[in-house]
Design a protein around this nucleic acid. Structure first.
Lengths: 207, 207, 207, 207
DNA sequence: CATGAATGAGAGTTCATTCAT
DNA sequence: CATGAATGAACTCTCATTCAT
């Protein structure tokens, strides 16, 4: 199970997003995060403006700053949330590994990012934005890598920790590539090939 | 050796970079492009400022605008230049294919972006920047894909055009992944694995 | 229930001046418009700078742009405002026509622009500025012409619409000339002569 | 007779236009002045750029600065030239006064500016440009006023100097109005009315 | 002299963030 | 708390003028 790393944990830091105290606030935060996801995905981190994000959420700009004291804090919250989502997905895959073929495991791994359409586009935008503090970006990367490593170990327990990590890096970056494939021609065929390639590669791993 | 003075002679279109007419100008343009490469690579397209780029080149801001009338024109010039560089590299690989093993071919393909250190980081930054006109980004992507497809056909002439294209998409996006690998732990091992994976995949392709 | 968020709902068109929502804002807008009037009158549209206008109003540059998103929008607002002022003046004259001699009517018409000292100088500057969109300039011109035509018809109802329009053109351009007269020597005598000339002309019109 | 006030008179002032020494230079100066006339007429003094003017003349920017060391000097030369032209026209009218009816005299006076199409539009642009030093603008105005006063005195010798001046002011500003009439509807009818008005006015003057 | 690349102060405009209401 | 007007540093881009060639 995955206990959420809530922002409130780090409440000492003045640049952390503040957790909403009431129901109304939660709804508003959801709307703000959703709007931020769309706007960041569409324009990238730098080109997105706080005013536009607030506007897209139907919220006043002051409200946005109530919960996210800086633009970077907003990005951080999204990155953390994506980390949480993806960790959950990876944990689910991990649990199901005993009942799945390698084909299906790889398909689900590669589909992870692809399936979260707008969210993944936003995550990519933030991961690549140099303006977002590197350690925030590392957090998501690391979460993905470790979650994936756990899935791989569940599938092939004989893998050493470092072997699993290396393989996880290959898988995770393949996930990223899946996202970019969307902008290429013959994306579907390429995805299929890629998946087959990964399956064959992982099958041969321990030997 | 590459004597090309840039194929581009689009002097009618304003918003095009203007070619320098004197020796001094050429050196300055080189310095500007080099500075732009570094700054874009370090901060991304949006966060980079024209003033900083000019400063990094030791040039006044007016000089930068003399040659590159807009920020987008500067990016375009870089993207075109990278396209030219990478096409040249791919052509060289294509020529050498008959004398190379698949291992070496894949190694050189994957190394293509990696070897152009700062340049590739800048190219990535521009390729992913939503603020750069999409068609400019497509140009570089397309050049890479087609050049790679030619290399693959040279290696395996029995590939159909569409088969080669799909495989090229896989290879090119693997190149991109190589760049991002630099930010991960155990990058070297992951690169080696990736390369082995691609070799195996390509070897099995036509069958 | 939906309480009106202010009468002005031009929210679709960007580049429109935004109406201030608070008392303080109204005062500030007045100060900005007044400063703009002075600066445009003194330097002309092109040579006036937004920074100087803001400075003259004792406002930060951001405030100016809060209400007038472009320099052209500022000019437009002034032109519209002048149109409103002058229409009101012309309507007042129209109402009073039955009680006035032609001498007085002409004097008040010619005095229209002259009496609005700074405002008229600014209006002239904007009317003549090629950089101000022509349709905005036409609007003021048209308003003056039609308002003046109505005054003339009120005085001499037997005038046809087109006769009134032609005469209005003569009168309006005489008003403009009054403004320029300020820069000449013997301005007062020239104004008196001009007025006499117009009176005689209009008296002879219908016959 | 009208001795031209050549620029060379004031050769001490470093901001004066330099007279060309050779035939080739004269042709180039003509081309530059003609180009300047067109560009100033089209865009106004402020919006016109020295580079565009040089370009319109097919001359390099350095050549423009060879003859006109500042933008203001270029305007001054044009204004002086227009003064010379118009003085010549007015002198011609003055000479012909004994053989002309008042109708024809007024028609020729009002037609003065109108007949010099591009030139008058440029002159208006410069006369109204606050960025052009006022004394330069006054020069042209004064020349027009004095030339016109001489015409009026030739027609009605009994006019005192100051009476003639006041009337000249009315006539000259009527000329200016003729130019602006071009932008109005029913321009032709208005011009005819205006002319009739002036004729009647001048006929009644001395009495 | 002739040329046009070079220069940099300054223009219009934006936007993250604050704080009075 | 909630709001959105207010702020000003910083950004992209222009252009009159100079001066090395």
């Amino acid at each position: 199970m995955n206990f959420m790393k809530m922002a409130s944990q780090k409440s000492n830091d003045s640049h952390q997003a503040r957790a909403p105290k009431r129901e109304r606030g939660k709804a508003r935060v959801e709307a703000l995060l959703s709007a931020a996801t769309q706007v960041f995905a569409a324009k990238g981190f730098d080109a997105a403006t706080m005013t536009e994000i607030a506007g897209a959420a139907g919220a006043p700009i002051g409200s946005l700053y109530q919960f996210f004291p800086t633009k970077a804090a907003l990005a951080r919250t999204l990155l953390e949330r994506y980390g949480t989502h993806m960790s959950a997905h990876l944990s689910a895959i991990e649990q199901a590994v005993p009942t799945l073929s390698l084909d299906v495991i790889v398909a689900r791994l590669l589909g992870l990012l692809t399936s979260l359409a707008e969210e993944r586009r936003c995550a990519m935008a933030l991961l690549d934005a140099k303006s977002v503090p590197p350690e925030q970006r590392q957090t998501l990367r690391k979460g993905l890598r470790e979650g994936t490593a756990r899935v791989l170990v569940a599938y092939a327990p004989e893998l050493s920790a470092s072997e699993a990590e290396v393989a996880a890096v290959v898988v995770v970056n393949s996930m990223r590539a899946m996202v970019h494939l969307g902008e290429e021609r013959c994306a579907e065929q390429a995805r299929a090939q890629w998946q087959a390639m990964l399956v064959a590669h992982l099958r041969g791993l321990p030997g």
